[in-house]
Amino acid sequence: MTRIDTAISDIDVLDRLAAGVSPIHRLDPRAKLIVTVLFLLTVVSYRKYEVAELTPLFLYLAVLLALGRVPVLVIARYLLLACPFAVLVAVFNPLIDRQIIAQLGPLAVSGGWMSFVSILIRFVLTVSAVLLLLACTGYVTVCAALDKLGVPRLLIMQFLMLYRFIFILADEASRMLRAHSLRSPDGRGTSLRVWGSLAGNLLLRAYDRGVRVHTAMLARGFDGKFRPLPGFHWSIADSLFVVGSSAFLILVRHGQLATRMGRWALELSA
C-alpha cells in the first residue's frame, strides 16, 4: 500500500468507528468537544516533573474507551505511528537535567527522567483524547459542533470541503502514482522533474474540478453564504456529562489523588 492509501484507510477506520452506536456516541458533540478541551487543558497544566498525579487521568480515557466501544488497538496503533516530535524533544531532558529530585528507595531519579516520563504520559493522554473524540463523534459532526460554538463558518465549510475532496484527490493521486510506478519498475521515488509534472497535473485537475464543483453549486442556488448546519439537541445527559467530567478533572488536578492513594497504601502496609 502506498502512503496515500494508508492515510485514507486511517481516516476510514475512525470514520467507521464514528458511525457506531454507544452512550458516548449519543452525547451532544458540543459536550464531547468541551470536555475534550478541558481534559487537554488539564493535562498540559501540570508542572513538568509531574508523573504520579497525571495517572488518574487515564481513568477518563478508560471510561470513554469502554463506553464508546473503541478498540484499544486502534488507539495504540495511532500512538505508535503518530510523528513523535514530542518524544524526540523529550529524549534530551534526561541528558540535560541531571539534578536529583526524587529518591525512590535506593534509586535516585533525576529531574530529566521525571520530565521525560511526564512528556510521554502527556503524549499518550492528549493523543488518545483527541482520537477518542473523533472515534465517538466523527469529523463532520465535530465540525458542526464547532459551527454551533461560533467558529467562522467559512472556516467550517473549508474543513468540510477539504474532507470531502481528500478522498477524491487521494484516489486520483494514487492512480497516477500507480501508473507511474508500473512504468518505472526500478525507481524507488519520483525524481523532481517527474514529481513536478505529476503533482502539477494533479493540481490542474484539482483546479478544473474546483471550477466544475463551483458550477454545480451555482446551479443549486449557492450565493457565497452557507446556511447553518442542522442543530443538535442538548439533553440532561449532556449537562451531566460535562458537569461530571469537569468535577472529575478538578478533583484529579487538585486532589492529589495518586499521592493520597500512595500514602494510604503505605500506612496500611505499615
Binding site: T2, R3, I4, A7, L154, M157, Q158, M161, L162, R164, F165, I166, I168, L169, A170, E172, A173, L177, R188, G189, T190, S191, L192, W195, L198, A199, L202, L203, A206, Y207, R209, G210, V211, V213, H214, M217, G224
Partner: peptide
C-alpha cells in the same frame, strides 16, 4: 470556496507523494 476545498485536498494528496531530491 470550491477551489479552496480541492486545492487543499490537492496539497494533502501531494504531501503523500515523496520526491527524490537530486
Amino acid at each position: 470556496i470550491p477551489l479552496m476545498g480541492v486545492v487543499g485536498a490537492f496539497v494533502f494528496a501531494a504531501q503523500m507523494i515523496n520526491v527524490t531530491i537530486p
